[in-house]
């Protein structure tokens, strides 16, 4: 039990428009694991990720992330949770007017880290994602895969315990996608960062052979180690 980084208990999420995105979900995720969340559109993948970083609150149930009771977390304290985790999105969400270095440094700056400490960590994060030679480029001078790697560097620069990825390869071609997956795998293996990645890319899931959480209509239908993308489940 001590090893669980995330625990969800009977979580249900119903949106204001009446759509139930997650239904009675109970789940625990071990520290240091690499998890795929799969399922068709509307299966609740994104909602699950959003609840983990407290973008959405569950209607009922309990969510604990790294010892923080996410449900009871006040709005003004959400930043304390966010500092423990990194988030990567399908659309990268970089600031176009900042260079690669500045984009990653931005995450350090807003939490008040010192320049010396920031510099060390930013360069290290950019090295992990293999972009140390492009720190002075602007996002629009990079390929999609490179931009996503900048976003990953920004997510891991603060050395979080948990990395949440919401369809990080959704905008990328298969080669670039595998590039991203390699980076994520390295991060997971070398720093022991727990990774939860929502995706609908069968190829990736089947090749990586990681834990797979399968959702259907907001319910957990399968949770397997070394799982594959199972068509009948979805």
């Amino acid at each position: 039990m001590k090893m669980d980084l995330i625990r969800l208990k009977n979580v249900t999420k119903q949106y204001k428009n009446g759509v139930t995105a997650i239904q009675d979900l109970t789940l625990s995720i071990k520290k240091g694991s690499f998890n795929f969340v799969i399922g068709g559109s509307g299966s609740g993948k994104s909602t699950l990720i959003k609840m983990l970083y407290r973008e959405e609150k569950p209607t009922t149930g309990q969510i604990v992330v790294g010892g923080v009771n996410v449900v009871r977390l006040r709005n003004s304290k959400v930043y304390k949770l966010r500092r423990k985790l990194g988030i990567v999105f399908q659309d990268y969400r970089l600031l176009p007017k900042l260079t690669v270095y500045e984009n990653v440094n931005f995450a350090m700056e807003v939490i008040g880290a010192s320049k010396v400490e920031s510099r060390k960590k930013v360069l290290k994060a950019l090295e992990v994602v293999g972009l140390k030679n492009k720190i002075h480029n602007y996002p629009d001078q990079l390929s999609g895969g490179e931009q996503q790697r900048v976003a990953i560097a920004r997510a891991i620069v603060n050395e979080p315990k948990l990395l949440l990825c919401d369809e990080p390869t959704g905008n990328l071609d298969p080669d670039m996608s595998m590039e991203i997956m390699k980076v994520l795998d390295t991060i997971n293996k070398e720093t022991g960062t727990t990774i939860i990645m929502a995706t609908h890319d069968k190829d990736i899931v089947n090749r990586m052979k990681k834990q797979v959480i399968t959702l259907k209509d907001g319910r957990l239908v399968n949770f397997k180690e070394k799982g594959t993308y199972n068509n009948e489940a979805v």
Binding site: L95, I111, G112
Partner: peptide
Amino acid sequence: KREISIMRLVGASNMTI
């Protein structure tokens, strides 16, 4: 707006924003 939403995602406190 974009900058603010990213600030929130990477853990800037409300006061900082």
